[in-house]
Nucleic acid binder design. Structure first.
Lengths: 337, 337
DNA sequence: TTGAAAGCGATACCAA
DNA sequence: TTGGTATCGCTTTCAA
């Protein structure tokens, strides 16, 4: 059955070496305060001598908890090339590891709420699930309903109020970026949205609209181009916007990639950024620093988002009911606006 | 002990419902061919009715295999912002999932070969470990020596010949990029290397040197600037190169980010790309398509690298000894050279 | 405060 | 081809 290469160390051996029962060994490792200090010392000493390593499968079988938290990322081509998800995940991983939990990464399509991924998540194989970038939240709800702790990165739809989430304040961010364009004197401000099916895309657009209201500028629907976070779509949309609205002098793009695309399109039409048209992005990923002109953008704390999600998960697991957290954004002014 | 919310389903229940023993149930699920077809059907039927979900912890305890493969990424700030690792990991994850294995992601510093990460990896908590971007391979060797299947993404140092690895053909890639510069007429070609402590950095430099030899150009050591993959270091190095070697007319950068930095530095000094100085990058990540001028670069199959690593791992686990795989590169000609 | 013993759910050996 | 049963390592109840 069990043929490992390392000499497997168990409670039985510690028990023998330390001259106590297995029960006592277990108590010591689980921090039971009622064990006599001498025995505690003896157990630790024996464990060290043997080079004891716990067997998590055995513990999992016994306790029903696996020590694993799944991070589920929607399998979308855009997810891969975007550094965003790697950063989020590393934030999650770091916090979990500090708390003795492991990060199980699943990159999978989330449209099937009855497929293998769904079954896996519902079968108590993991102690919790962190969902990222959800379009449809049917799977999220199904998993949550099955009793597994769930945290969503992003904001779930309004009727799923019982699901814990952490998110960037995208409305404020969208407002911030758009408002900056008005403040520097733009009169005709367009936007290239992200995927409106995600809360991030929708909220950033709301912020765009809010900035119009606050600045007493009438919203022109023709200046809203519905994108999907990708360079290619954004570029095409920007070219169209330029063709139909030649007087555009400012663009708020819902992510940095789209902002880059907008700039490319603008320059392709012989106009200059920021002199003719100012452009603001969102995310403050590496590209915004490295592009020329360097991108003025709305910064969000991406690693922090992952950490917040992990922290929320830890609280839920330990029986608390944390408030959902909304991380703030910051305007980073560079050259493009 | 075990308080899950779902009604837990076990072999015992299937056994009862189907009127066979637990042993038979086990045989059916493990594809034992000696079971009578009628009983196979009965077991599957019962399992479906109950909504059976296997308990992996129990299986793990019994078999000693956990169904988990760790992907260990060196915790380096640069690792986070670079989309490279996210793409590699998603390649790994996809292949593993198709084979019923899960991806355990660990983002951790790898300099400590006696810390918690090391212990975890050696304790048979995972069925295998895929290491990415290793500087020092002491931990890798230690884990491999402990009997855990190991695959390295990148090329281990020469004296670790027994470790399986998958890598991009970085020498050929470096050659390809540099050679292109010579072919389009460059006379004085500089390079900004990656981290020479990694095989990728070293091999791309070797390719750079090889191209000189093949083109009968004497290698000028002053044209080699030792970078670390980052934008900032590359930009500083490029500025220095320009100051000390004003006749540079071509640059091979070891990754796209460094190429972007080189272009930024070059334009800051009032020269144009590619007219005055041609620039070639490496990776073909998103930035190379989105930058202006669009980057001529050496493309490597990043997701494929992850997939190859996972496939190698699967073979090793099933007892084979696969050859190490070297993936080929391709020159993508855009505008910068 | 401690120990003995009964599980947790699946596997695999042995006997039939 | 099938069933009974010991076993994996740890937790937890029950008695002492």
């Amino acid at each position: 059955m069990n043929d490992s290469t390392l000499p497997r160390s168990t409670y039985a051996e510690i028990s023998e070496l330390a001259g106590v029962s297995k029960s006592t060994v277990s108590r010591v490792f689980n921090g039971d305060s009622r064990v006599h200090p001498d025995r505690v010392a003896a157990v630790f000493e024996a464990a060290k001598q043997i080079g004891y390593r716990p067997n998590r499968a055995a513990r999992a079988l016994s306790t029903g908890r696996t020590g694993l938290i799944a991070v589920v990322i929607d399998d979308d081509v855009s997810a891969l090339g975007d550094p965003f998800w790697g950063m989020v995940t590393s934030g999650v991983s770091r916090v979990l590891m500090q708390n003795g939990l492991q990060t199980l990464l699943m990159v999978a399509p989330l449209d099937d709420d009855d497929g293998p991924v769904a079954h896996y998540l519902e079968s108590n194989e993991v102690d919790g699930v962190i969902f990222a970038q959800v379009h449809k939240d049917t799977l999220v709800r199904k998993v949550a309903k099955s009793g597994v702790p769930v945290v969503v990165i992003g904001t779930p739809s309004d009727d799923a109020t019982d699901i814990h989430f952490v998110d960037t304040n995208n409305v404020a961010g969208g407002y911030m970026g758009t408002n900056h364009l008005f403040k520097i004197g733009c009169k005709t401000v367009a936007t290239i949205t992200g995927d409106i099916g995600t809360s991030a895309g929708l909220h950033r657009l709301k912020g765009f609209e809010l900035a119009h209201k606050e600045n007493n500028v009438k919203l022109n629907k023709n200046l809203i181009a519905y994108g999907n976070w990708s360079f290619d779509s954004a570029k095409i949309l920007m070219l169209r916007l330029l063709a139909s609205n030649p007087d555009i002098d400012g663009v708020f793009a819902a992510n940095d990639i789209s902002a880059m695309a907008a700039i490319a399109a603008i320059e392709e039409r012989g106009k200059r950024v920021p002199d003719d048209i100012a452009v603001v992005g969102f995310d403050d990923t590496l590209v915004s620093q490295t592009s020329r002109p360097a991108l003025t953008t709305v910064k969000q704390d991406i690693v922090g988002l992952g950490q917040a999600a992990a922290e929320a998960m830890l609280e839920i697991i330990s029986g608390e009911k944390p408030d959902s957290r909304i991380l703030s954004t910051e305007l980073i002014i560079r050259q493009s606006a």
